[in-house]
């Protein structure tokens, strides 16, 4: 049986960008929980995959981070930069094209 997380792996970047587009700003733990909630536990982003990706997107200038005191600790919030918003559009577009191609291929095999 194919591992689900490996299927989702390449889609993680557009998923996170889209989430930040919708929610304006989020912190790491919030992202993992929101994805888990939306997908009803079908997709669980591991910390080991999430943080390197967030840090890379920040380094590429697609995300910007802001520190804020929450409860009794500092929290790092991520939001999209202007370049990040543009990237989100293109990444989602690419993902949709990919899904259509995949669907087409699967239907072709079935028929």
């Amino acid at each position: 049986m194919m591992n689900k997380s490996s299927l989702y792996k390449g889609c993680l970047e557009p998923i996170i960008l889209q989430l930040l587009q919708t929610n304006r700003r989020m912190y790491g733990y919030e992202i993992t929980q929101t994805v888990k909630e939306i997908t009803k536990g079908e997709l669980q982003i591991t910390e080991g995959a999430l943080y390197p990706l967030l840090h890379r997107l920040e380094a590429q200038g697609l995300l910007e981070a802001e520190m804020q005191l929450a409860d009794n600790r500092m929290r790092k919030y991520y939001s999209l930069t202007k370049a990040g918003k543009e990237k989100t559009k293109s990444a989602i577009g690419e993902l949709q094209t990919f899904l259509q191609t995949l669907e087409h291929l699967i239907n072709l095999k079935l028929t």
């Binding site: 910390e47 080991g48 943080y51 390197p52 840090h55 890379r56 920040e58 380094a59 590429q60």
Partner: peptide
């Protein structure tokens, strides 16, 4: 491993 990834990102930044 997480620190190593962060180090790469910090360099890029």
């Amino acid at each position: 491993p997480l620190v190593a990834e962060k180090r790469k990102a910090a360099k890029m930044f």
